[in-house]
Amino acid sequence: MEVRTIKVFTTVDNINLHTQVVDMSMTYGQQFGPTYLDGADVTKIKPHNSHEGKTFYVLPNDDTLRVEAFEYYHTTDPSFLGRYMSALNHTKKWKYPQVNGLTSIKWADNNCYLATALLTLQQIELKFNPPALQDAYYRARAGEAANFCALILAYCNKTVGELGDVRETMSYLFQHANLDSCKRVLNVVCKTCGQQQTTLKGVEAVMYMGTLSYEQFKKGVQIPCTCGKQATKYLVQQESPFVMMSAPPAQYELKHGTFTCASEYTGNYQCGHYKHITSKETLYCIDGALLTKSSEYKGPITDVFYKENSYTTTIK
């Protein structure tokens, strides 16, 4: 009895394709271990004539594949690729409408935090270190965002349907971005203890939790000093293409032309909904596939993004 075979390709990165001759009487799992086709788990399936010449994702289970996976995804987590594939199996079914010149995501599976993050990423200057993220990001900007969303979920250790947080998501993504040249110098002034300067680099240099107003941050924000008295913390120097200011959701007025974009969060910790506000020729609110415009805006804002380049204080 002759062994019926077909020729397929296996890959971990969709760049390096490895030619395989597979036995049609055995499952993919018996031949390769966990195997995925377009995100779908085909591990328990036997090869079919229609699979001839198709590319299958496999887990990096030998040295060659491990090197290829690390170079593309910059992670050695053995569960990463499987999590990416199972997320992709959902995100490829989502709709990605162009809204006001940006790629958004039609609401499904509690994905409003991903839509808000995706919209924000198209408006701030950011370059990702893992080629996987950078490639998928370019495709997302062009309207094909399924891979990018699935990668975000995998890097953030999230599953489809789980509630997510924009600030946490951005923080994970910033860790995989090139923020080497970003720098922030802060000064804390206390009447009792004097003053202390701190220099922050990388992710810490672009994120701040405690106030939404970048102007206020430049002037000074009140913080408790270690001595128990009130101290003032203010920005001395900022070198970065953008800054992200966050605070627990509270009524906040966004003035046209003073910011790049913002995240609105309605609801409580267990259950809520994100919308995205962007400042173009007027203010726009993007909620999944829905767009509304207004000249002014007041609502429960939790993150505001500002364009920056270089700032030095005039406070002496």
Rank of each mutant, 00 (worst) to 15 (best):
T55K: 11
I45A: 12
Y252P: 01
C190T: 04
R141I: 10
Q122E: 05
T266S: 10
I124S: 04
G228L: 03
N178P: 03
T313Q: 15
M207L: 05
Q251L: 12
Y172E: 07
N147G: 09
G299K: 05
P249G: 06
K293D: 07
T169G: 04
L179Q: 02
S294G: 04
K229Q: 14
Q31C: 11
N16K: 09
Q251S: 08
T75C: 15
T120R: 04
P47N: 01
I105H: 02
F174L: 09
R66S: 10
T313R: 14
K158V: 01
T103P: 02
G29N: 12
T302Q: 03
E162M: 05
Y36D: 04
Q222H: 02
Q216K: 10
N147S: 09
Y297S: 02
Y172L: 14
K293M: 14
Q237S: 12
W107Q: 00
K44L: 13
S79P: 15
D287W: 02
D23K: 13
Y73F: 09
Y72T: 07
T27S: 10
V12F: 08
V21R: 13
S181A: 15
D287L: 05
N187P: 02
D287Y: 00
A69V: 06
L179D: 04
T199S: 08
G33T: 04
D180T: 10
P60E: 06
T159Y: 11
A247Y: 06
P47F: 07
Y172S: 10
K229D: 15
C156R: 00
N147W: 08
T169H: 02
D13F: 05
T232R: 09
L283D: 00
K307F: 08
E215A: 08
A145E: 03
M85F: 08
K219E: 02
T199R: 09
Y284T: 12
T91G: 01
L133F: 00
R66K: 14
E296S: 14
N100L: 12
F128D: 01
S240K: 01
A145P: 11
H18G: 08
A146D: 06
P131A: 04
A247D: 02
E2W: 07
S86Y: 07
Y57G: 03
H256Q: 14
V8N: 05
L114I: 10
M209W: 15
F174P: 06
T314G: 14
L65S: 11
